[in-house]
């Protein structure tokens, strides 16, 4: 176990004294193996730098990333969506970094981070343990809960396999167009035309599970069932044929 992970476990243990025993067990899991994380991070290095004198490259530098508002490094050219999520309140805490590493597009559909994601949960935890060493006192990671089980948006095959009813999707889609401009304009509110189906389904589930921060979308997606999201996707997909 790396130094960081041990340190975190120790803090967690002292906090755990105030928690119920069941919770305590969960809270003291190791965050991840930072040494292994350093090795995995090589995959990221062509675009991201971290450590002393790290500069922005194709992607922003990652010092102090924990607790940083999304899209906030001045002078770095982010996608519109990333800036918007930052304004919506997306902060890079553990949970969101984990979700982003798992599938960047689940959080930000138009992200320039062209990376399909680290699907192995342990690998993600290891990379985050490594990166966390370069964020001194992360504001949004309560020190007492370094291992709070992160939520993530990993759609099961069953969800992806649901065949939606396009007619129902057409009705449901009429709710979207009260705000989203039909001609694809994206002034103030993102465009919802020309979406790939899987991105769409992933984004809706990310709102539903409150991984993406926008309150209106969390509410709208929150009441859609898996079948209804599939119906919307089917409707949009039918338009593409």
């Amino acid at each position: 176990m790396s130094g960081v992970a041990k340190y975190l476990s120790a803090v967690a243990l002292s906090a755990a004294a105030f928690l119920s025993p069941a919770l305590a067990a969960e809270e003291t899991e190791a965050l991840g193996d930072a040494d292994n994380g350093a090795v995995i991070f090589r995959k990221c290095q062509s675009c991201h730098a971290v450590g002393p004198d790290a500069k922005n490259k194709v992607g922003p530098q990652l010092n102090e990333v924990f607790g940083r508002k999304a899209g906030a490094i001045e002078g770095f050219r982010y996608s519109d969506g990333l800036i918007r999520e930052g304004n919506n309140g997306l902060v890079w805490d553990y949970e969101h970094l984990d979700a982003y590493l798992n599938n960047p597009k689940a959080l930000v559909s138009d992200t320039r981070m062209n990376f399909r994601g680290l699907k192995d949960e342990q690998e993600r935890h290891d990379v985050l343990a490594y990166l966390r060493q370069f964020s001194a006192s992360p504001r949004d990671i309560p020190e007492a809960q370094p291992t709070a089980i992160p939520k993530e948006i990993e759609l099961s095959d069953e969800i992806l396999a649901i065949v939606g009813d396009p007619e129902y999707g057409e009705y449901l889609s009429s709710e979207c167009t009260t705000c989203h401009q039909r001609d694809g304009g994206d002034e103030g509110i993102p465009s919802i035309t020309q979406w790939a189906t899987e991105d769409f389904v992933t984004a809706m589930h990310a709102y539903k599970e409150k991984i993406r921060p926008h309150p209106v979308m969390q509410m709208m997606a929150g009441r859609l069932t898996d079948e209804e999201i599939a119906a919307l996707a089917a409707y949009f997909a039918a338009l593409e044929d």
Binding site: G86, N88, T177, T178, H180, Q181, E187, I189
Partner: peptide, 21 residues
Amino acid sequence: AALRKATYEESVGWYAGITAD
């Protein structure tokens, strides 16, 4: 302030969306 500004911009988008709808 950034969130409040984004909220205003969103309302401008909504206006365009609902009037087209």
